[in-house]
Nucleic acid binder design. Structure first.
Lengths: 221, 221
DNA sequence: TTTTATGTGTAACAACTGTTACACTTTAAA
DNA sequence: TTTAAAGTGTAACAGTTGTTACACATAAAA
């Protein structure tokens, strides 16, 4: 899930996008920051849409590819915590620090509301972006609420096979998978080995095949 | 009959909302369901805003009070999975089953978009509702990604003390807390005992006091 | 008050996962 | 091809959590 593969980000949050024409009278400010500057602190009021126009920042939160509590690196162009502007407790959930020189476009909350009324495309993109984020979070939460490693593997493999069929290819290596699940790499390897031993799955390099989907589903409990 | 004659139809679970008046030409449908009917299936296309107007349904998802994988019971009035209408993969994440006779107001996606353009208050509520949901999910995810029980306790207590001061009161009993953390009750009790033994916290019935916030913070790692 | 239900503290043990270490394989680079 | 780096399989052991069981405390109901 890189910024380049997420189509929503190409339009939303990029002021140079041709499809997204901001009105001339839009009130906004642009701020420039140097390297290694703490630009938002956890708990700061979030009363504007902050779009990272250039540069990159890091936050300590769940990462886009789902790794746990890792340091997320956000590269321009992307909005910063857009979902939080409109929440009742509209405060930044994490610290945000620049990694290089950054330019941030700041549109006040009221202007965002006006923009959405005036620009259906903007509204649609805003909604889609947040909807995708919510879906992502929901999915991660489902995965995390499964306690056992085999259960997590089962959840993930069943999801993949419903998308790709059987057999299917998983791009991540074992270390990345372990991070994704939030478990230790040798523990993941052990669980995989046991599942192979039990003839539930078959693994060849990055190709996985489900041999016994009933047993696999039983592991979800 | 106008759509505005029933005050409960103000969406987003806020029946006291006087500012939300639907336009008379709004396209919508109303569906009635009997008891124990599967009304949405996991994977069903979600191309409309479905508002539960009366009755109650259950889903198997994270609950509003945060318990894991419990069966969430949703009582009217509340929107059903409003965040998913606008996601790229706009499908229901779970099964939804009626618990009693239910009435569901269904507004097509395009009409929702129009409604938002026409009705700033509706848009604001839609945005706020989803923002709050995202914030809730983010917070749960943060809590769940902490591996140790003491870490979860620390996270929770530090959050509570920032809201309520020190000492503070926690309404949930031990069993409910354990469910909230997704751990076994005796395990939670053991961890609490050890933290009390280590003079990190003090507990009297439902009143908690932090004695050593540095040590408490160390447990977050 | 007595009775009953609910909530809490704790122990012994099982089960699972993490840590560390190392051999081996595969892939990429020189 | 040779060499280095990255990835995988596995074992021994430590650490944490879950399970089950039961005593006791507290609160609610009769």
């Amino acid at each position: 899930m890189s910024i380049n593969t997420n189509p929503e980000w190409n339009s939303f949050g990029n002021p140079n996008n041709k499809n997204e024409v901001f009105p001339d009278d839009l009130k906004y400010t642009i701020k420039n920051y140097g390297k290694n500057i703490l630009i938002f602190r956890q708990g700061d009021l979030c009363d504007a849409l902050n779009i990272l126009v250039s540069g990159s920042v890091k936050t300590e939160m769940i990462t886009e590819n789902g790794n746990l509590l890792g340091i997320e690196i956000i590269s321009a162009p992307r909005p910063l915590a857009p979902a939080f502007i409109f929440s009742d407790n509209n405060r930044f959930p994490v610290d945000v620090t620049t990694l290089e020189e950054c330019e941030i476009l700041r549109i006040p909350k009221d202007e965002v509301l006006r923009l959405m009324s005036v620009q259906p495309d903007f509204m649609r993109q805003f909604l889609t972006h947040n909807a995708n984020r919510t879906q992502f979070l929901t999915n991660r939460l489902q995965l995390l609420s499964i306690k056992t490693i085999k259960g997590k593997i089962a959840h993930f493999l069943l999801e993949q096979t419903s998308l790709q069929g059987n057999p299917f290819v998983i791009k991540r290596n074992q270390t990345e998978l372990a991070d994704f699940f939030g478990v230790a790499r040798p523990s993941l390897a052990r669980s995989l080995s046991e599942m192979i031993e039990d003839n539930i799955i078959e693994v060849n390099k990055k190709e996985y095949r489900i041999l016994n989907s009933k047993k696999l589903r039983d592991l979800l409990v």
